[in-house]
């Protein structure tokens, strides 16, 4: 039997999630590098059209598990379904996006089948033993290469943005229905309807300019200098999560994976370190300016212009200069 790579395809509102498309791109690369076969694995109920859409990608097959119990995500049911598929197919590897649902699911699956799991990877390297996986840690300041030493299947989750969906290769494959015996699984967790909280409040996605503030501002009273800069730039004020957690600004001003996604013309990040959960919400800004006292802050890896210095000096000076224009 040839070795296989499986990619779990997550979907919401009848669409394949971006994170899964990115995972599929990585899967395609890994398959090319190793000669392993590649399979898209989709769970759900009445998602034939998505399975057929996947069949138009460059994969060896689309493995499709249909069951009414898979209609909504539940950790017990999804874990059981995946355990059965992995136990039967014994792939080398299962890839999935590091989205909230898989943060909830992947470790449970790893413990249930007692297999190795590496989370939140940004890439991989082909090595003799198969693959090592690259992940960020220590608040994105360091990277690590991680090797799973125990038996297959390995489970790997991939960080949002680890590949570009534009690189997804087309192809033609067969959809193979796969059965899972789920009648005996008891879902212990009861999920209620999901709801959106920020709706109807500040919509930062329309802002042309944004001045964003992070924990470097130190306390709420210091926000004045940020507001002044925002005013001179005709910009909206936004924030990283800790600023919102401390209740210095409202939740509707948070940028990032659990906040809003923006792509303004100008994004000025003041005292923000540049954690991935923040970056995913603003990396498509046209021009990013970072002001941070730490020369190694990861925000400088994505900014256009950087100023290494004390925001309490730089920000007021910048405001003053802009007012003279």
């Amino acid at each position: 039997m040839s070795e296989a790579i499986y990619v779990l395809i997550d979907h919401a509102q009848g669409e394949i999630r971006t994170a899964s498309q990115e995972s599929l791109v990585i899967g395609q690369r890994m398959a090319d590098d190793s000669g392993f076969s590649l399979h898209a694995l989709i769970l759900g109920h009445e998602v034939r059209s998505l399975a057929e859409e996947l069949a138009g990608k460059k994969v060896n097959s689309v493995v499709w598990v249909d069951d009414p119990k898979l209609e909504e995500y539940d950790p017990d049911v999804y874990c059981e379904a995946l355990s059965q598929v992995l136990t039967e197919k014994q792939p080398h590897l299962l890839l999935m996006g590091h989205i909230y649902q898989n943060i909830d699911l992947a470790p449970k699956l790893a413990a249930a089948i007692n297999k190795g799991l590496v989370t939140d990877c940004i890439g991989y390297r082909k090595v003799e033993e198969g693959f090592t996986f690259v992940r960020q840690m220590f608040r994105n300041k360091l990277n690590a290469d991680v090797q799973i030493r125990s038996s297959h299947p390995w489970i790997v989750t991939l960080q949002a943005g680890s590949a570009s969906v534009d690189d997804l290769q087309e192809g033609s494959a067969e959809v193979v229905a796969q059965s899972a015996e789920l009648s005996s699984v008891q879902a212990r967790r009861k999920s209620l309807e999901a709801f959106e909280v920020t709706k109807g409040k500040v919509d930062l996605s329309k802002a042309e300019n944004i001045v964003a503030v992070g924990r470097g501002i130190k306390k709420k009273e210091n926000l004045k200098i940020i507001e002044d800069l925002a005013e001179t730039l005709d910009a909206e004020v936004a924030a990283s999560r800790p600023v919102v957690d401390s209740e210095w600004l409202g939740r509707d001003r948070q940028i990032g994976s659990s906040g809003q996604t923006v792509a303004p013309r100008l994004y000025v990040a003041c005292g923000i370190s540049g954690a991935i959960q923040h970056i995913v919400g603003m990396k498509n800004s046209q021009c990013i300016v970072a002001i941070n006292s730490d020369p190694n802050a990861p925000i400088f890896n994505i900014a256009s212009y950087g100023i290494v210095g004390d925001l309490f000096e730089i920000v007021p000076a910048l405001t003053k200069r802009l007012r003279e224009l």
């Binding site: 990277n143 400088f300 950087g306 290494v308």
Partner: peptide, 24 residues
């Protein structure tokens, strides 16, 4: 299951900010 960190390093980045230097 054994999962081992085989190497830790500072990330190489291809696109870095242009750092502006001088007095405020």
């Amino acid at each position: 299951p054994q999962v081992e960190v085989v190497r830790v390093y500072f990330p190489e980045v291809d696109k870095k900010a242009e750092i502006l230097e001088g007095t405020t």
